[in-house]
Every structure is written in C-alpha cells, then in structure tokens.
C-alpha cells in the first residue's frame, strides 16, 4: 500500500479583489468582489514507503500548497489525500505523529531556548519514550555534529547549525514521512553536504519516506531517483530522473575557442552559434553525432585554441521544461538531420 496517495487534488483560494487607487481601497472596505485563484488543479500521485522523491516546480507552481494539504493544515477544495492511511485534514494530530517537517526559511525550534531544550519540549509534545529519545538524540548529534552547540540558544546559532538542529528536531519522533521544503537554502557547500548525507542516511537506515521540495537541483541529483514536476498547479512529469535525461539530455554542446574572431559559423549536424566572436558553441544530438567525429571536423575547419564538452545537467533540462512545457509524446526520436 502506498504511504502517500493523492487523487485529483485541487485547491482554490478565494481572495478579495483589490481596486486600484485610494478610492478603490476605500471601496474594498465596503463592497467586496472575490477572485478565485486555482493553486492546484487536480494532482494525482502516489509514493511507496521509503521513497525519496524530489518535488519541484517554479515559484508559485503549487508545491507548498500541496505540502500543506499533505500535512493537514490546508483543506483541499476537492480530491482525496491519504498519508499513511490517514486523511490529514480530518485527523490532523494523528497525522502529525506520522510526519516530520523541515522548512528552510522558517525554524520550528524555540527561539529563546537552548537547542537541547527545544528537543526536550518536542519529546514532551510527541511523548517519545525516554530511551528512544536518548538514542535518537545521540545518533543525530553524532551524524550532524551538533555536540558543540547543543546548549546554545537557537537565536545565536549560524544558519547551518540551526538547519542541522531543525533536521534533528523533525526526526526525533521517528516520523514515517518527512517533508523538506527548501532545506538547503542559503547554506554553504559544507553544510549542504552534511544535510544531504544526513537525508540519505536516514532514508537508507530507517526507511523514512522523504518529499524534497527545492530549487537547488543538485539536492535532487544527489538524493532522488524519482522526481515529480509541477507547473501552474498541474503535474507535468512524474518519473525517474533517468527518463528525463533520456528525453532532454540528448544534446551535448561542444564549446570551442577560436584563434581568430569569426563573423559567422556553421557545422553540419549541429546547431552552431557564436557566444562571442572567438567562442563557438555546437549543440549536437549524441545519438546521431559522436563527439569524436565532431571535434575532428571542427579542428579541420577552424583554428582552435581550446575545446570543452558540456554535458546536459538537470538544471538545463528543467529550465527547458519550465519554458516549453513537458513534451509527453512517446518515444523521442533523434531530431531530423540537416542535409549534409
């Protein structure tokens, strides 16, 4: 049985329509017109226990709205949600015992209290048995290297330290599902890596299910096999990153520095552009053109000083999908070749 089941989930927000100008402002005080904004338009997906899924989409795509419905703090306009067999908005507190949440931009630690006292309060809130609590705190302090700042009030912690504290806080009660909302935002490389290692370890060792919302696609590449992409409140892709790669990662780019400035550039079988007069870019389909043959032809044609090969990264693939929409037509074939 899937641990998260979502069917035809919809959420419509109703807000007061604002009239422009001072007169308009006064008018809205007395008579109100409402506008409906559809934040999520019918999403269906399911997650198996132990999955680590990237949930991505541009700003305003409906990611947070979905997460809020899964955590039970937002009531869907229609559709079904189940998390570990529970309808979150109907049984908020029962659901709360099964989930953990980490917000990169909002701490759930108690600002004035030393970190360890926040943990103690959470122990009381969730009623975690003492032994279990001790074992978890020890394990997390160890993995996240929190020993040095356990007694420091949260407001004095650095962002990296605070995030580590927030992660531990979210996991103390052994949640089945953990929602991560931009957990690495603003962190330096070392802290990011510490957090990613922690997520991977908890996922592997405890079988915790993670939904990771982020704009840092390096998080996704490092941690997730599966990715769910939404845009404009609609699910546009749900599958393995490999599938995306096969579909959108077909094109590599050969970047060539020229010894002399060129006015125009051309190379059969590629999309050739000049980034600047001495930098040529040849974008080619790896399935019809080999890098070796292309490099050979380029060197034969131009006076070359340097060559690099750019591989498609998730970032550029996602950028293309955001811009052009996901093309779900089956069996992507090689692009038709220009006559040579």
């Amino acid at each position: 049985m899937p641990i998260i089941e979502v069917r035809d989930l919809r959420k419509v927000f109703r807000s007061v329509k604002r009239q422009p100008g001072l007169g308009g402002t006064l008018r809205t005080l007395f008579s109100r017109e409402y506008v409906d904004k559809v934040a999520v338009t019918g999403i269906t997906m399911s997650l198996e226990a132990g999955e680590l899924v990237g949930y991505i989409g541009p700003n305003g795509a409906g990611k947070s709205t979905t997460i809020k419905m899964l955590t039970g703090i937002l009531v869907p306009s229609s559709g079904d949600v189940r998390v570990a067999g529970i309808v979150p908005y109907e049984q908020r507190t029962a659901n709360a015992r099964n989930i953990g949440v980490v917000f990169g931009q909002r701490s759930q630690l108690y600002w004035d209290l030393p970190l360890v006292e926040s943990f103690e309060l959470l122990r009381a809130i969730y009623g975690i048995p003492r032994e279990r609590y001790r074992a978890n705190v020890d394990a997390f302090v160890d993995i996240l290297e929190m020993g040095d700042f356990l007694a420091t009030p949260v407001r004095q912690l650095s962002l990296g330290q605070r995030m580590r504290g927030d992660f531990a806080a979210a996991m103390l009660h052994d949640p089945k599902v953990v929602f991560l909302d931009e957990p690495t935002i603003g962190l330096d490389v070392v802290a990011k890596e510490a957090i990613r290692t922690f997520i991977a370890e908890v996922n592997a060792e405890r079988g915790t299910t993670f939904i990771l919302t982020t704009h840092d696609l390096a998080d996704i590449e490092r941690l997730c096999r599966r990715v769910v992409l939404i845009d404009g409140g609609t699910l546009i892709f749900d599958g393995e990153i490999e599938t995306l790669r096969e579909r959108y990662g077909t094109h590599r780019t050969l970047v060539v520095r020229l010894a002399e400035a060129a006015a125009a550039i051309e190379m059969p079988g590629t999309e050739a552009t000049l980034a600047d007069p001495t930098t040529a870019r040849f974008r080619f389909d790896r399935r019809t053109v080999t890098a070796e043959s292309l490099i050979r032809r380029v060197i034969d044609t131009y006076d070359v000083t340097d060559i690099t090969l750019e591989e498609p990264d998730l970032e550029s693939m996602i950028t293309r999908i955001y811009r052009d929409g996901y093309d779900a037509s089956p069996a992507p074939g090689p692009e038709p070749q220009a006559a040579t």
Binding site: T71, I73, R92, T93, A96, R97, R106, Q108, I125
Partner: peptide, 13 residues
C-alpha cells in the same frame, strides 16, 4: 508570522 503552520503540524490541541 506564519508560525501557526508549524504549530498545526504538531500532535497537540
């Protein structure tokens, strides 16, 4: 402040 969101995600009344 929006922190009510995290309060609501706790198993408390």
């Amino acid at each position: 402040e929006g922190t009510i969101a995290t309060d609501l995600m706790k198993p408390i009344n």
